[in-house]
Simulated scan of single mutants.
Amino acid sequence: MRYSMRQPIAFIFDIDGTMVNSMETHAKAWLELFKQIGMEYEEQDLRRLIVGRTTDDILRQAFGGNISAIELNRLSQLKETIFRQLYSPHLTPIPGLLNFLEKSRLLGIPMAVASSASRENIDFTLSGLGVTSFFNAVLGDETGCRSKPYPDIYLAAARRLGMRAQDCLVFEDSAVGIQAALQAGMKVVAIATSLTPQEIRQRFPVARVIRDFNEIDPTSAAALITSDQS
């Protein structure tokens, strides 16, 4: 079924692991930060700690809530600075992303970003990829929404676009992000960068699993929503 403008729909994108494959660099940045302040984490424990959470939430968890607002802000800024320094030379989109965004815009499909990342990192990524103008709304940790897997940021993105939750299709990679979108009542296209396709299909009732955006086009993506509404 082809997308029809008579059936309004929207696309909402996570960033890290969805638009760019940056999760390894985030992990390296956290390891460097913790090294600088004398904390140690096993890599597996670190990954469980950081996925889907805001930087401030991660720091509160790491310090057991025993951290002042001043120190929280200082360490948050330091971690994101480390990340941008590490990732800047490697900032590239997930294959097929730019073409997908361009075709979606030509079809008149509104798009938003909904991420747990800091606004500085979001702007760094979107401007670095040259895609800021594609999005009608951009939401990050400045919204004050509860971290994923709570659905808050996806529901906020839908409201910002003036869309019903069931008319939004989310592109996500992480388990907590997929959970958040599903709890928001949205369909999900899962990008298999953080989990394998098999893990995703076994754990979540997603509409589609892709390895990159070369495996899907906006018309077929839109049909994942409109086919249930016809």
Score class of each variant (00 low, 15 high):
E172L: 13
A180G: 02
C168S: 09
K148N: 06
L139S: 12
G96E: 04
R60F: 11
E120M: 15
R146P: 06
K28V: 14
E199L: 14
S4I: 07
P93Y: 05
V113P: 00
R160P: 00
N136K: 14
T54N: 06
D141H: 05
A180H: 07
E102Y: 10
T132N: 04
E32N: 13
A192S: 15
Q166G: 12
T143D: 00
A190E: 01
T193G: 03
F124Y: 05
S118D: 08
I50S: 02
Y87M: 14
E71I: 05
Y41L: 07
G185K: 13
G130I: 13
L98E: 02
A184D: 01
V113S: 05
F124R: 02
R208S: 02
I210H: 11
V170L: 07
L98A: 11
L139Y: 07
I216D: 00
T125N: 06
I9Y: 00
M1S: 12
D123F: 07
Q7K: 14
Q85L: 03
D212L: 04
Y3L: 11
M186R: 01
A69Y: 05
E215G: 07
A222H: 00
P110G: 11
S118N: 11
R119I: 15
M39H: 10
D14Y: 14
Q166D: 10
T81R: 11
C168R: 05
I9D: 05
L106D: 02
I216T: 06
A112S: 09
V188P: 00
P151Q: 01
I70C: 02
A221L: 04
Y154M: 06
L126S: 03
A69C: 01
D16K: 04
S68C: 03
L49Y: 06
G162I: 15
T54E: 04
P149Y: 08
L49W: 06
R201F: 12
I178Q: 03
P110V: 15
